[in-house]
Amino acid sequence: MLSEKSAESIRATLPTVSSAIGKITTLFYDKLFAAHPELLRDLFNRGNQANGAQKQALAGAIAAFASALIKHPDVRPDAMLSRIAHKHASLGITRDQYQVVHTHLFAAIAEVLGSAVTDEVAAAWDEVYWLMAGSLISIETRLYAEASAPNGDTWSDHRVVGRYAETRDIATFLVHSADGSPVPPSRPGQYVSVQVQLPDGARQIRQYSLSNTQDDALQFTVKRVTGTRNGEVSNHLHEYIHEGDIVRVSAPFGDVTLEESDAPVLLASAGIGCTPMISMLSHLASTDSPRQVIAVHADYTQSAHAFRVDLEQLVSKLRHADAHVWYEAPEDPWPTDRTGLVDLTGVPIPQETIAYLCGPVPFLRAVRTQLLRVGLLAANIHYEVFGPDLWLGQE
């Protein structure tokens, strides 16, 4: 709950802080990494720092959280922070690191806003920060307890027991715990973090969706990213990790998971966004689900479409399922009405459908708009986006 006095200060200063939040987050990260270079080397995604995506996501989260507190001062908006908490848990973020962030974030706020940061204003934003941090710590504590890792260390060594090429640039890795311990439970739609040591000594971490849920192994799928620093981990995995090698993997996390329900379900993906969707579809098929299932996928070409055969086979196993696929530049003869971008106009979608979306933000926006237009409730449309969530607070 945000105090009435602080709410007045936040309401008055939110426009000023929002307009300067980009400068604040840039300066914050400069200060943080100057004081703690090991965080950039071994924890933060160097690619997202270089392209500004992480700074933009942090700015959006702070602004969205503060706005939510102003609109509903008696409610702590835990729901909007669940996605961040799951990502933090997959990295092993701990309670003490929030104080480190506070120190450098508030130093950046004071430097950028100068005299506008009175004692009253500083106290109000301090209250906002600790409400946000407290919410995240609470969720992360619960996630660590569920993963039987109360200290936040969910990492363990895993041996690669299988590697399979899905396309020229996409590979699936099957891993078992190196010490023979049981595989941690996962839910369709979740992801794991994978840490590798790069040639410069950095231990960089990336998240990869589980493309199937199994009792005795973890299966994650990696698309090679080229041309940017974002691809330094995916390229390392593609070039150097083979059967028999050891990789460090976290417990599964992720808040966008398949809900048990009798309602129709729509699984919509684009490109490598198919990985959590194919996991959900596999679960539905393996449990002989009677639900109506609508599978939608968009890709550039047939050869770029990972799990293309799996999609066809899994849909055929379900009693009430259909697949609808679009290609931007088909390599083989392909229906004209399924060439280009996804258009759900001709796809029958019941209004009670629960939808799961995964892909680039423009795809998510376009499909979500189409689903709202046909009558789906906004609360029944769930999305997963790879990388920093640049959509948070912008819906």
Rank of each mutant, 00 (worst) to 15 (best):
S19Y: 09
S19R: 15
I21R: 04
I21K: 03
I24Y: 11
I24H: 13
T25E: 12
T26K: 13
L27D: 10
K31E: 05
L32R: 07
L32G: 03
H36G: 04
E38F: 09
L40C: 07
L40M: 14
L40G: 12
L40A: 15
R41C: 12
D42I: 06
L43C: 08
F44I: 06
F44G: 03
R46L: 06
N48R: 07
Q49K: 00
N51S: 09
A53Y: 04
Q54Y: 07
K55N: 13
Q56D: 12
A57K: 03
A57G: 01
A59R: 08
A61Q: 14
I62H: 11
I62R: 08
I62L: 15
F65V: 00
F65Q: 05
F65T: 04
F65C: 04
F65L: 04
A66T: 04
S67M: 06
A68W: 10
I70W: 13
K71H: 11
K71A: 15
H72F: 13
P73W: 15
P73T: 10
P73Y: 14
D74N: 07
D74V: 07
R76E: 13
P77L: 06
P77R: 09
P77D: 02
A79M: 10
S82H: 07
S82F: 03
S82G: 09
R83W: 12
I84V: 14
A85N: 08
A85H: 10
A85Y: 09
K87H: 03
K87R: 12
A89Y: 03
S90E: 08
S90K: 09
G92V: 10
T94M: 04
R95D: 14
Q97C: 05
Q99I: 15
V100S: 04
